[in-house]
């Protein structure tokens, strides 16, 4: 399978401070990959590097042959990168429905099988009853559903999920990942950034362990040996 998104030799720096030192990674369509690593290892910088939101980058980020590095975030979103940001970032002045609809304004205008509000509600039925409430009045898990719905409405080819399990109850996390699995089965490429190593290995096909701005270990999640991953994770 040829990769849909290819990150190669990505360097990212904020002024004098360098966060990524030549990171390589690939995702294919319909694949879930996990990026794991400790705090400050460079996971968030990877997301920023792909989305183009911050920092100066060097190297290459290609989506189906198109170079994304150097594009502005709106162009990157339109190219087909959907972001579920860390901390969900729901807009309090917008209702649940408006938060989701906002995604439709940002993304790819032409898609064979565009996402609609109805399809989002099918995916997350919990949201239907609350669709006219302010987005921030919902529980953390439901807010995460809004954030995923909003990202899907951009009709992404690659979905980036930044720490979606943070602060949520295990049952909710289970349900969210179940839905991500379904989305991947539909052909979406999903990159999951996680601090929770075990969870990440369970739901992904492949994993990349990031340490100090580089990939310290990668492989098939099913074959991952916990001890070696832990070593790559903490850098011992």
């Amino acid at each position: 399978m040829s990769a849909l998104l290819t990150v190669s030799n990505l360097h990212l720096s904020y002024g004098q401070f360098a966060a990524l030192h030549g990171l390589d990674l690939e995702i294919g369509a319909g694949e879930i990959i996990a990026v794991i690593g400790a705090n400050g290892a460079g996971k968030s910088s990877l997301i920023r590097g792909i989305c183009g939101t911050e920092g100066q980058g060097r190297g290459s980020v290609r989506l189906d042959g198109q170079e994304l590095l150097g594009l502005a975030p709106p162009e990157i979103t339109r190219a087909g990168i959907g972001l579920v940001p860390e901390g969900r970032r729901i807009f309090p002045s917008l209702s649940v429905e408006e938060n989701i609809l906002l995604g439709a304004q940002l993304g790819r205008p032409h898609s064979d099988d565009p996402w609609t509000l109805d399809r989002i509600y099918d995916l997350f039925p919990d949201l239907v009853a609350k669709r006219h409430l302010s987005g921030t009045m919902l529980s953390g898990g439901q807010q995460q559903m809004i954030a995923i719905g909003r990202a899907l409405m951009t009709n992404p080819r690659v979905l980036l999920c930044d720490e979606i399990s943070l602060g949520l109850a295990p049952t909710i996390i289970g349900r969210l990942y179940e839905q991500l699995g379904r989305l991947a089965a539909g052909g979406l490429a999903i990159l999951v950034v996680e601090q929770a190593m075990r969870k990440a290995l369970q739901i992904s096909a492949r994993y990349y362990c990031v340490l100090e701005g580089r990939v310290s270990l990668s492989g098939l999640s099913a074959e991952a040996e916990e001890e070696r991953v832990a070593e790559a994770y903490f850098g011992r």
Binding site: H11, Y14, G15, E54, G55, R58, L69
Partner: peptide
Amino acid sequence: APRLWRRALHFRDGAGRCGSAPRRARPTA
């Protein structure tokens, strides 16, 4: 480092209302 990217979007300089938005510690000169 060579600057390939457009200057970090300028909203970085304008986190909005005074003091309420969390500021990222950025070691830019």
